[in-house]
Design a protein around this nucleic acid. Sequence first.
DNA 1: AGGTATTACCGCCACG
DNA 2: CCCGTGGCGGTAATAC
Length: 314
Amino acid sequence: MKVSALAVGGMSAFHLSVPGLIFGEDRTGLGLPRFDYALTTQDGAPVDLAFGLGVAAPAGVDRLATSDIAIVPSWRDLDGAVAPALAEALRAVIARGGRVVSLCLGTYALAGAGLLDGRRATTHWSRAEHFARRFPKVELDPAALYVEDGPVLTSAGVAAGIDCCLHLIRQIAGEAVASNLARHIIMAPHRAGGQAQFITRPMPADARAGRLGAALNAIARRAAEPWPLDQAANLAGLTRRSFSRHLRAETGLSFGDWLAEQRLSLAREMLETTGLPVETIAVAAGLGTPTNLRQHFARAMGVTPSAYRAQFAA
DNA sequence: AGGTATTACCGCCACG
DNA sequence: CCCGTGGCGGTAATAC
């Protein structure tokens, strides 16, 4: 699978590193496929990034155009037009059945290329107002971590960009592999796209640090069991009020939503890797009844469990 | 597909 | 005073 990221002059190397972290390194040991990953620039010439870093030997837009996944990790000229060659390359990716992904301000490039007209998208919150004014035809969701609409996937700040790339990995290689990779790069197991750009900590240090993090890990590991709020709070050594508050500050979610997310993750994994009936999976994932499972699936994923299974198998 | 019982959520405020 | 905490309780959501 061919994956390319576009570097533009003056951008931060940090943004540009995100796709490389996910697609550029050999992660076959974690169950990922081997990606053919490369950096590109618009004219194929080297560019200088911010802070004295640079890209020495990039490929050109033709490489971008023929990729399965084309990623634009940032963008600099927020008021200028997108070069026709780049716009054409991005459109070509979609025309060939590939996917175009933006991180952070990269959404400007996709919008400028006309890829987002009539579609839902997100970008960094600090530019939401400006973006909305410039691209009124784009349905901007300034609060989301990432938004998927057809072949186009857009995301918020850098940390959300990692969530977004993990989302791609989940679609490519499945829930188990994606969680594995998330653990490996010390991210929270996975944050759903819909919520919470405005959390206090973009890189959730809940990764095994602190009482809250430790408790959440323990609960996530046994998410299928019943977890009354008081019991969960107790495990963290907090009152229910403080527990709820900290959890929201950390993840942007209420405990109920957070727990449902963990259970959905279990359910997805079982749908992907087993042939068990939906009823069994609902019980085994802690979601109780198939009706309940279907409801959560519809809300979070927009598909029924069986459709998800079929889609994943394909 | 609707009704009910249970639980969670979160604004508010007093406290240290 | 500032700020995190913990309890209260009306309202909302959830599960079945």
